[in-house]
Design a protein around this nucleic acid. Structure first.
Lengths: 343, 343
DNA sequence: CTGAAAGCGCTTACAG
DNA sequence: CTGAAAGCGCTTACAG
């Protein structure tokens, strides 16, 4: 079998002895075709292993059934779970989902948006905190605006500021505040916070919510007690280790994400400290794995799957007025064995 | 600002006062253009927020910088890690990666392949065990053959049989055998195995390798000792629970994937059994999280990231003779605290 | 119900 | 170096 290019509609039409138009209609069912001819077309298409060229089709005006999802890192359970929700709804609507990871590189994010825009994807979903960076915000706006004007649909999760698009916003600030309250109720008064890069709005919101609630209770949180690390398991490990070498005096550590909390738990274990006997640890997100840790992690549970479902639904429902629609989703404090009462 | 369609090359050319050809060349740098004109084109493109239509471009013959990756479930850490490797290499080669999840539905897999083929993606990578199903094999072959003949590149991880394409194959059978040997060395003689659907080749290979090695040592593995569940954390939980209700008499449980092992650990904990004091547990894959479990999981470590890197490299390097190239990757037994010696 | 033809937005020989 | 024109593979009014 020698290499030969893809069969085209013209090949099919010729083999079936009909016109291009008839072949197209028979294949797509967009207009009635006499059964006799239809069968011949289908037969020929089968023989030739014909697949329509999606580019030609899109160019000619047929609409696209593909939606693009851009997140920081698909291998992070947070994004993987949100993406799962997106895919569930997409599937119900007969859409194909293509995922991309930016690894938190603003340039790469722009590159993916540009590709998706160039491909005229039916929708673009941006998942995950934006960057507090005016240049990037402007560039993104420049990409998105013409895309939307051209009929593209955009929705975001966890991202706001400059972007005037439909959004699903987890209540990071309120959730972190509720967590602070819960931990205060357990009797803790000396806290440490493990945080990701401050330029991520999610990080900023969670730290602020946590701190505000402590302040309200008259409990101080010094600058030294807030340690910044990468937004990953290893970042949590490093930040916790840093805290430990400086001499930990907190009775409770709050990590701004579960993923970082997992790293913190490992660092504590490696230092011979036991959780929660020696230190309590709490996270944020409620990614699936935290239930299976020993001890299971106390956290602010976000309906991750739903975050994705809602975003996809927003992108799917017409928005004639083009007013920004916002869905806020609350988090709920779930106390598990990683946090204990202070005697 | 009223909705208006995307600006086209023609808009840019007109605004710059040049021909279509000149505008194209200025934008792509495919041929020299006098700086004077080039600047006017770039200026106009910027003003109009011009993005080339990828479909038109692909149709006109420009090559595509997109590769499609199809796996069972991106939210499974195994696939997420392999995908990470793919993206690393893709990034070095200036390629964009689009991921898709089939959720182990053969139909959906075919649908994604068909889309990617229709989009004339530069390469298609299939990650994860195939199905032992002649109809599906034939259908997949029918999709892939014309794609390859048309210049498309295909590589697979963990999949073989009917597909005559470049492949990266983890040594599942040998790895499972090595694990059996290691567990026998710890003194275990009564085993149970937690397995996924037998129609997945990976599952079949791992169970066979494990069983063969036991047989060689004269240790029996009865049909009842092999319990099948879904290929997920919950599947592992259910299978382990099943075993427990029937009265577990094994001293060691081998799960064919780490993900299932995590479910098994949870089931044991919920039954008040302690690992490894009461039962030893071992998995397969060495996904990142297992190091952070308590106890850390004994497993067969596969170089997951490399699996992806190799597959991407195979797809990227020319294969003039079109002979099938196969990279085998060995697994290595890593003993951690979830398995103990039998006194 | 069917076909000839225009057009979608680009790229690239082919002349100049 | 620049432009007019053909062509990539489809879809869809427009006639019949």
């Amino acid at each position: 079998m020698q290499p030969r290019p893809h069969a085209t509609l013209e090949d099919v039409a010729r083999a079936a002895g009909v016109s291009l138009a008839t072949a197209s209609r028979a294949l797509n069912g967009t207009a009635p075709v006499r059964p006799h001819l239809r069968d011949r077309v289908l037969e020929a298409a089968g023989q030739l292993a014909y697949t329509p060229n999606a580019h030609a089709r899109a160019l000619a005006g047929a609409s696209h059934r593909t939606v693009g999802v851009i997140c920081h890192d698909v291998s992070d359970p947070y994004f993987a779970t949100v993406a799962g929700g997106i895919m569930r709804v997409a599937d119900d609507n007969d859409l194909l989902v293509m995922l991309a990871s930016t690894f938190r590189d603003p340039e790469r994010e722009l590159a993916y948006v540009s590709i998706l825009r160039a491909e005229r994807a039916a929708a673009i979903l941006l998942i995950g905190s934006g960057f507090e960076n005016p240049d990037w915000e402007r560039a993104l706006h420049t990409e998105l605006e013409p895309y939307i004007n051209g009929g593209g649909r955009v929705a975001v999760v966890s991202r706001h500021r400059s972007l005037r698009v439909d959004a699903v916003l987890p209540e990071n600030r309120a959730g972190a505040a509720a967590m602070a309250r819960a931990l205060l109720d357990l009797g803790h008064r000396r806290f440490a916070v493990l945080t990701g890069p401050r330029t991520l709005t999610t990080v900023a919101d969670r730290v602020a919510g946590f701190r505000d609630e402590l302040t309200r209770a008259g409990v101080p949180l010094h600058t030294d007690d807030v340690v910044e690390g990468a937004f990953t398991r290893d970042g949590g490990y490093a930040a916790m280790t840093d805290l430990l070498t400086r001499g930990l005096d907190a009775t409770c550590v709050f990590a701004v994400t579960d993923v970082m909390a997992i790293g913190a738990l490992a660092a504590l274990r490696d230092h011979g400290l036991s959780v929660p006997a020696d230190v309590s640890v709490a996270g944020f997100d409620d990614i699936p794995i935290v239930r299976d840790l020993t001890p299971p992690l106390t956290t602010v549970a976000l309906p991750l799957q739903q975050l994705g479902e809602r975003a996809m639904q927003l992108a799917l429902t017409e928005n004639p007025g083009r007013r920004r629609r916002i869905h806020r989703m609350a988090g709920e404090v779930v106390l598990r064995a990683s946090t204990a009462k202070v005697p």
